[in-house]
Computed example of a mutant assay.
Amino acid sequence: MVIENNALKILNKMTAIEPEIQEMVRESSLNAELAQLIYTARKQAGLTQAKLADRIGTKQSVIARLEDADYEGHSLSMLQKIARALNQRLEVKLVGNSDRLQ
């Protein structure tokens, strides 16, 4: 989408000289991506937040928090529980930061 592309260009230009802001944007993007992955996987499994919570032994409010793009407390153990409850497996990769300023 053109508007989204333009917004990303503006954001990139604004943060190009501020490494701290770049890092904050990266972290926020990762949190939003994790939240979306959890939400999408849960919906594809046909589960409500309450049903997923029951499967992993927690409360619906915890699932709601995990699906919030602003949430910063994702843990590997919780993500693993969610993956197992959804009959999936969790993959974690470390990749190089070719776009990161040295």
Rank of each mutant, 00 (worst) to 15 (best):
I82S: 12
Q60C: 11
L76N: 07
V92S: 11
R89E: 12
L90T: 06
D68L: 01
K93D: 13
S98T: 09
H74S: 06
G57K: 02
K59L: 09
Q60N: 12
Q80M: 06
Y71F: 13
L90F: 05
L86G: 02
L90S: 07
Q80K: 14
D99V: 12
L66E: 03
K59N: 11
S77R: 14
D70V: 04
R65L: 11
V95S: 15
S61K: 09
K59Q: 11
R89S: 14
K93W: 03
E72C: 08
E91N: 14
I63S: 10
E91F: 05
S61H: 08
L66M: 12
G96M: 08
E72S: 13
V62G: 01
T58M: 04
D99W: 05
E72D: 09
V95D: 11
D70T: 14
I82K: 13
A69Q: 08
V95C: 07
S75G: 15
E72P: 00
E72W: 00
S98Q: 11
L79Y: 03
N87I: 00
D70W: 02
D68R: 04
E72M: 09
G73S: 12
R84F: 09
S61V: 12
E67P: 07
L86Y: 04
T58Y: 00
E67N: 05
R84P: 00
R84D: 13
E91L: 13
S77Q: 11
S75A: 08
E72K: 15
H74L: 05
L86K: 02
L94V: 13
G57Q: 01
D68M: 03
K81N: 11
A64E: 08
S75Y: 02
N97P: 00
Y71M: 02
A64F: 03
A69E: 15
H74E: 06
L90M: 09
V62W: 04
G57M: 02
H74Y: 03
Q88W: 05
L90K: 10
Q60T: 09
L79M: 06
A64W: 03
V95M: 11
R84T: 10
D70A: 13
L76Y: 09
H74T: 04
E67V: 13
I82M: 13
M78E: 03
Q60W: 05
G57W: 01
V62E: 10
I63W: 01
H74F: 03
K59A: 09
E91T: 12
S61C: 02
R65F: 04
L94Y: 10
V92T: 14
S75H: 04
I63T: 02
E72H: 07
K59V: 09
Q60R: 15
L76I: 15
A64T: 12
N87D: 15
G96N: 12
A64Y: 07
R65T: 08
R65S: 01
V62I: 07
K93R: 14
R65K: 15
L90P: 06
